[in-house]
């Protein structure tokens, strides 16, 4: 490892290291959000990013010993589809968001 982790504890390191790898994956996904070329590509990219975030939050919750982070993961899992639905509806029938 090039950089030292917070603790010497192996389990924590594995969880936080996995979270860091998922974060790298997030940057790879974000390439699609930048490149586009259509808005639909971007919506899909950010939707996958949201799912990725739920996994990272769960890993962080396990690694840092904070079960409350799972609540945030749940909120994100519940709200993640909202943006995709809203923008899809916006594209199909312009003006219909809610």
């Amino acid at each position: 490892m090039p950089v030292a982790f917070i603790t010497g504890d192996l389990v924590t390191d594995v969880f936080l290291g996995a979270a860091a790898l998922f974060m790298l994956l997030a940057i790879a996904m974000f390439y699609r959000a930048i490149k586009g070329p259509t808005t639909q590509d971007r919506v899909l990219a950010v939707n996958v990013l949201g799912t990725n975030t739920v996994v990272i939050l769960a890993l962080l919750g396990a690694g840092l010993g904070e079960p409350s982070l799972l609540d945030i993961a749940l909120v994100y899992a519940l709200l993640n589809f909202l943006m995709a639905v809203a923008i899809s509806k916006f594209t199909v029938e312009r003006g219909g968001v809610l």
């Binding site: 974000f30 959000a33 808005t39 971007r42 939050l57 840092l64 994100y76």
Partner: peptide
């Protein structure tokens, strides 16, 4: 419209930051 989508991704990152800094 793309800005709105990408801004949602920014929000995901910030939420992760807050979670990592133990501000659930």
């Amino acid at each position: 419209l793309s800005v709105i989508v990408v801004f949602a991704a920014y929000s995901l990152g910030m939420a992760l930051f807050y979670a990592f800094l133990l501000a659930p």
